[in-house]
Nucleic acid binder design. Sequence first.
DNA 1: TGCTATTATTTTGATATTGGAACTATTTGA
DNA 2: TCAAATAGTTCCAATATCAAAATAATAGCA
Lengths: 152, 152
Amino acid sequence: MDFTTARRLNQLLTSVYGDILRVEELALRKSQFKDISIKEVHAIDAISMYEHKTTSQVARELRITPGTLTTMVNHLVRKDYVMRLRSDDDRRFVRLGLTRRGRLIYRAHESFHRHMVESFAGDMNDEQLHFIEKALLNLQAFLEFADPTAKK
Amino acid sequence: MDFTTARRLNQLLTSVYGDILRVEELALRKSQFKDISIKEVHAIDAISMYEHKTTSQVARELRITPGTLTTMVNHLVRKDYVMRLRSDDDRRFVRLGLTRRGRLIYRAHESFHRHMVESFAGDMNDEQLHFIEKALLNLQAFLEFADPTAKK
DNA sequence: TGCTATTATTTTGATATTGGAACTATTTGA
DNA sequence: TCAAATAGTTCCAATATCAAAATAATAGCA
C-alpha cells in the first residue's frame, strides 16, 4: 500500500473513531434522556434486554471492575433505567435487568448503531459486505495478537 | 442489507472499536514508556513534530478545553515529553513542541497506527482501497450530519 | 499616548470515572 | 461443621475534566 494512502486511511479511521462517542453523547443531550452518559448507555447495552446477566458477567464484558459497575448500577437504579434482581437459586448473585425506561434507551441506542452501519455499508452488495467483514476480521486479529485477552 | 449481517457488522465494529484504545494502552505498559497514558500520547500526537502549534489550537484539535490541556501539558513537561515555547511575536501565545523523548514516542505511536492500517488494508488493491475509503467517507458524513461541529 | 476591550493561557474549585483493597453475605466442600 | 471460595459492595485515592475567575499581553481607538 502506497504511503500517502496509508496516511489518508489512518486519518480517516482516526477521525471517525474519535467522532463516534462524541456524536452519541451529543445525541443523548438532545434526546429525552438527558440524565445519562454514553458510558451508562453502554452499560445498559451490555446488561441487555433478553436475559438477566450477573454483575460480574456484565463487568467482564465492559472490561471494568465489579466495584466500578456497582456504582454505575447504583446510579442507573436511582435514575430508573436498571433493576437488581436477586437470584433465588444462589443468593450471592445479583442479576441485572432493564426497566421500561431502560428498554426504551436500549432500543434508541440500537437504532443509532443500525443507522451508523447503514450509512457505512447500506448500499453494498453481498460480495462487498463480505470483503468489508474480512478486512475487519483482519484488524481484529491484529488487535488480538497485540493483546490476547481481547478474545471473547 | 440483511438484518443479521448488519448485526454482525455492528458487533465487529463495536468490538474492534473498543479494543483499539485498550491495546494501545497495553502496548505502552510493555514499552519503555511506562509513565504515560494513551490520552497523553494522543496529546503528543496532536502537538506533532513539524510545527509549533499554540495551546488553544491543540486543545481544539483534541476537543478538550484549554484548561484541561494546560494540566496535561504540565504533566508532559514534568515527564520530559513536551516543551513550552513562548512566541516572541505575540507573548500571549504558548507554542508547544516535543522533546527528544516526545519525538521518540510520537514515532512509536505513528508506527503502531501504520501497522494497524496495514493489518486492515495491507493486501488490498487500488480499487479495493478506494472502495474502503468511500465507505469511511460515508460514515464520516453520517457523523457530521449528526453533529455539524465534527467538521474539520 | 493612555485606556479599554479582546485574546491566550493558567489557576481554582467542583464533579465524575475508575481501580484496588477491605469487607459482607452466601455457598461449597472436606 | 466450619474454613475456603465466590459474588457483590463499600470506601478511599488517583485521575480527568470542565466552567469560571484570574492573569498576562496586545490591539485599537479617542
